[in-house]
Write a protein that binds this DNA or RNA. Sequence first.
RNA 1: GCCCGGGUGGCGGAAUUGGUAGACGCAAGGGACUUAAAAUCCCUCGACUGGAAACGGUCGUGCCGGUUCGAGUCCGGCCCUGGGCACCA
Length: 865
Amino acid sequence: MTMQDVYRPADVEAEARALWERLDADRAREDAPGEKYYCLCMLPYPSGRLHMGHVRNYTIGDVITRYQRMNGRNVLQPMGWDAFGLPAENAAIKNKVPPAKWTYDNIDYMRRQLKSLGFAIDWRREVATCHPKYYKWNQWLFLRMLEKGIAYKTTGTVNWDPVDQTVLANEQVIDGRGWRTGALVEKREIPMYYLKITAYADELLSALDGLPGWPERVKTMQANWIGKSVGVEIGFPHSDGVLKVFTTRADTLMGATYVAVAAEHPLAAKAAADDPKVAAFIEECRKGGVTEAELATQEKKGVATALTVTHPLSGAQLPVWVANYVLMAYGEGAIGGVPAHDERDFEFAMKYGLPTKLVVRAAAATVPDAGTTELGFLGKDGVVCNSGKYDGLGYQAAVDAVAADLAAKGLGKKRTQFRLRDWGISRQRYWGCPIPLIHCDTCGDVPVPDADLPVVLPENLAPDGSGNPLNKYRPFVECSCPKCGKSARRETDTMDTFVDSSWYFMRYACRDDDAAMVDGRVDEWLPVDQYIGGIEHAILHLLYSRFWTRVMRDMGLLKFDEPFTRLLTQGMVLNHIFLRKGDAGSLNYYSPEEVELTHDAEGRISGAVLKSDGKPVQYDGLGTMSKSKNNGVDPQMLVDKYGADTVRLFMMFAAPPELTLEWSESGVEGAQRFLKRLWKAVFEHTAAGKAPALDPAALAAQQQDLRRQLHETLAKVGDDVGRRYTFNTAIAAVMELLNAVTKAAGAGLQDRAVRQEVLEGIVRMLAPIVPHVAESLWQGLGHPGSVMAERWPVPDPAALKRSTLELVVQVNGKLRGRIQVAVDAARETIESAALAEPSVQPFVQGKDVKKIVVVPGKLVNVVAT
RNA sequence: GCCCGGGUGGCGGAAUUGGUAGACGCAAGGGACUUAAAAUCCCUCGACUGGAAACGGUCGUGCCGGUUCGAGUCCGGCCCUGGGCACCA
């Protein structure tokens, strides 16, 4: 086949895609030869169009997929849509289109975009989480969890918009007000369903050690999130029972001067019954949002109650306070207040005039006066004092002694507490997976029978912003009780969309199975060999998936513990931000495409002007591409302008995958330039006719050198792409090789034979990164089939051999010269050659040579004084 | 506050196990080709400095110190910066 003389990406890419279609190249078969390999990218939310982050993510996955295929593996690379969620509802409110239509239209558009980028995806396995055939299994497994007590119902706190009469997601609360109404948000207790992820807290934490293929950073974030604390549970008896408190600082127990409970604590309610002041305080705490950031910045407030409790060791009576800084959701929702050794308790005690008692001192300090009103020693490396029999003990000994004494009285024991809370999955939202329950006045909450699954979400409703439209949609709500047959109400809450994404990667393995959630193919393909996605999912999505996998394992549905063997978190895509300050402090952002940079004499960027009016704009640094900063770049526009291969090449070349990537259109042009140069090199080579056979024995020195560089590059690129995932350095090495082969001018028979080998090597190495153009070039080089069917090239040890090599000569660690020596030169030969080297001579002349360090193959260092 | 990263030319980045700092690319400057422009090709490109040139020298990876024949890389102390968690008892 003859090549076109210039590189035309549009033609090349259409041809390559037609070829893959013909070969059905991207289909993953269970019975195909080769070791199975599952390469997974996080599925996108169908927001409308692909953004650069998607392109980066999926290019990385595609390079790994294609590389593994060329290494003979049987690779599954699937794709799907995280299709439920709030943005679809927001778009519906704005455009008055049902979320379903918006979502399906977006999916169609984005699927076309993914195809135009040439990703080797098996589209037969495509999954959309909003499809009843998918979410049926959310419902099915939820019912199994309910049976096993892993799912349960209890009240939970939500943000409530009193004007719209609707529940708000955290991101819909802005400065404590509803995003649509501007009304002050209130807290509200409503019944919700929870999944008992805390039952797996210990395993989810300890199993992190068994994930060497995960970034340390992500494992640390998960460990912090799970937040294991070892401490003591302490009972404070009172007239009506025992108040339980959890602490990691049982060594300071003798310093407790009060106890405090959360506003939602039963003891607070008890106190409120007789005291309007307490009731008013509890009411005050109910107002305001439930976002963590909001809670954390609140001023510490509290109110005294008439209640007291008995200190379990000293017998002293301690007052009970209700305080807003005590969290109901952690520990027992109550604390022992030790002002002298806890900064929060200290702040609270000072504000309300509560006494402090110093009970820990620095190891070297003298025993202080217990009653001093000051913040005492805070660390765990102090010594207990003013605490009777515990005096003189260190942290651990004191905790052990206190725990033992409490246990003897039946008022305490050692306990582990996790920061992790159970996962509330109820959402008072329309566009999600219905929770399969029916509320019957006679029978209570009745699960939907398996035979009636899925509970299908009506797709024709359009939310208007005031509450969940399902509540008003009678064909959905009205039903009969599966138990007694009387008329009943269907649950209208839907599931958190994190449920959808907690197991989608399993469904790819068996999407066509309508009889089961998963089948044996899941154990064949999974665990996922390589997972790739954004760092923003480091905690929730990955933790929920790990939990979900274990739940399914314990139900006997699958045989592995961890869903993702290796994890790669790719960096974000950044671009410059330009703005002008308008009148009244408004900010107008300008797209980098509308801005022209000016340079000073040294090439530094000195300023920026708007192309349209030539007047300056302010530079506001780099930031993630976003609509609000108007610095996004549409991938489609780039694919249309440069072709998919150029976009893919730039993405992989500009930075290593884990780092942030700075957008640069001139960088894209550079990538395009490289592909044009490569095209030209292959075209000119093939235009001269078929290359003769290579005869390694007949090569001149320069031909041998070029061939050696090829095989050295094969070794490096194989390591970079296959092991290190440093695609940027792999591409750099190939660029060097192309520069070398273009400079090698010879036109003899063996010159052309070597050039054929080098160009073939380049094309095969680049095939995973720029697959379309690689197909055309491969055919141009005289091969009829697809380059993707070729094996990944391995270096030939014979070609790597050299007879002489260059050593660097240092004197006292400073580079002074280079010498050529035989590969097998003796140490003495190397030493004398180094000393005899003219450029080295002046630095050793007249000096005492103390020592000569020879690093084989690298350098010689002469130590002379 | 606690826990992780990261500081290398004008810029993105390279240097994989302690061994030639700045690969590769971008930007910039100069030149060739062209009526001209674009495209393409060639040259220069860390700072200071010697030399007519060829070719050299000194310094240089945030700062201070240490280990080593040799430190961007290891150790100690600081400074700056990005991110995560954040009243978690």
